[in-house]
Amino acid sequence: MHVPDGFLSPQTYVPAYALAAGAWAYAARTLQRRLDETLLPRLAVLCALGFVLMSVMLPLPGGTSVHASGIGILAVVFGPWITFAAVSLVLLLQALVFGAGGITVLPVNALAMGLAGSAAACLGYRLLRRVDERAGLFAAGWLATVLPAVLVAGVLGVQPAIAHTADGQPLFFPFGLSVTLPAVVVPHLILGVGEGLLTILVVSFLRRR
């Protein structure tokens, strides 16, 4: 979901930055309360881990593969706020140092993937693990993939309605929700299955030792 700069209007990214700033401040306070002097090294290594987990390949039937996001795994192991902080820093580095993504889409991606995705993963895991541990882990991986896709599709899909010329021509992203929701969400419904399976395997391996 690496949307480049230029497709989101200021009416979207300015309020998104305001919202994300509040969430980043709360995440920083939560981290300072929970962690001791290992805060900086732990967060730095977690960011590097998140960065590389996004390179882990998810095999697909037919011999092809796609990149995982690892957000479900990070959320189950470390909780939503640490995951949100780590994913935000990874997205910032990807945009500014490695030239992937963009600075105007950063708050939307951070809120969708880092906050909503990890919160949904934790909630899904806590609700379903009472029934079956593996069902909870699968739900964490699936929700961490699908919910951000729904949110990003929603943000892209409202652009023609909130930023257009007097004669109705779009100024930023041109397609409405009727296009973005199926185009973005349907592939992620399938990718979410792979992410859910990877979450079961990784977290089970980690707990078995």
């Binding site: 290594v45 590097a48 987990l53 390949m57």
Partner: peptide
């Protein structure tokens, strides 16, 4: 393929814990 990806991810987690 999934087992291999999971094994790589677990190794990275171990490395992350040690390194931090």
């Amino acid at each position: 393929g999934y087992a291999q990806s999971a094994g790589a991810a677990v190794h990275l987690f171990d490395k992350a814990e040690r390194t931090s």
